[in-house]
Amino acid sequence: MSTNLRRHWMLQGIASIGECGLFFVAVLGAVPKSLRYWRELARQIWFVGAMSLVIVMTCGLFVGMVLALQLYYTLSIFGGTAALGTVVALSLFRELGPVVTALLVAGRAGTAVTAEIGLMRATDQLDAMSMMAVDPLAYVASPRFLAGLVAMPLLACVFNAMGIFGGHLVGVSWLGLDNGTFWGNMTSTVDLHKDVLDGLYKSVVFGGVVSLIAVFQGYTAPPTSEGVAYSTTRTVVFSSIVILAVDFVMTAFMT
């Protein structure tokens, strides 16, 4: 009876949220110690950030281009195509930049982190570290968590810049909008704090969420090939859901 109850999926879900919360606290607690392993942190920033550049830049370019096309069409209905630069920039900075970047990073880097840590667990590497008196939370978990926190907003900035470039390419070079109008409208409306920085705050939070989920899933992955595979999938699914939910909440509070 009680095991039946404990196996109920909703209770299990709540329990794993609780575990994740406790894990978060443990990772945060290990952050000061992990600063000793700054080289590992650099390696993880390289892995999460620099290695994601190509995909983030490509996607940023195309998102900016398609935004310009779609919004040009919409704005032309209202005779407001002069505002194209503004709406492209606002859509990117406030919403698409942080969210799409986070989804991309969850897919590219989050899964890799989960699989890596899951395999380290399965091959006793985490136990071996702790046997060599190196806390795997500080050596493995915290640097990956911090790397997500640092890399995500930087990637979002790159994404945004590429998006603006793509939007300009379509709006000005292709659709023939006036260059001055495009930039002038944008610069007069876009606000550094309200738009650019608020978007970055979102990104920082997404970075924390994605890397926490990835590290947690890896840490708790059953030490089998199937277990690691499932955990990797869960990283993508949970990250995506949590990113969009947190995005909604943060947007509601920020506007």
Binding site: T123, D124, Q125, D127, A128, M129, S130, M131, M132, A133
Partner: peptide, 14 residues
Amino acid sequence: RERIGFLFQNSALL
């Protein structure tokens, strides 16, 4: 643990 060496059954190299 710094004073104990441990050889894992499956090596557990990093």
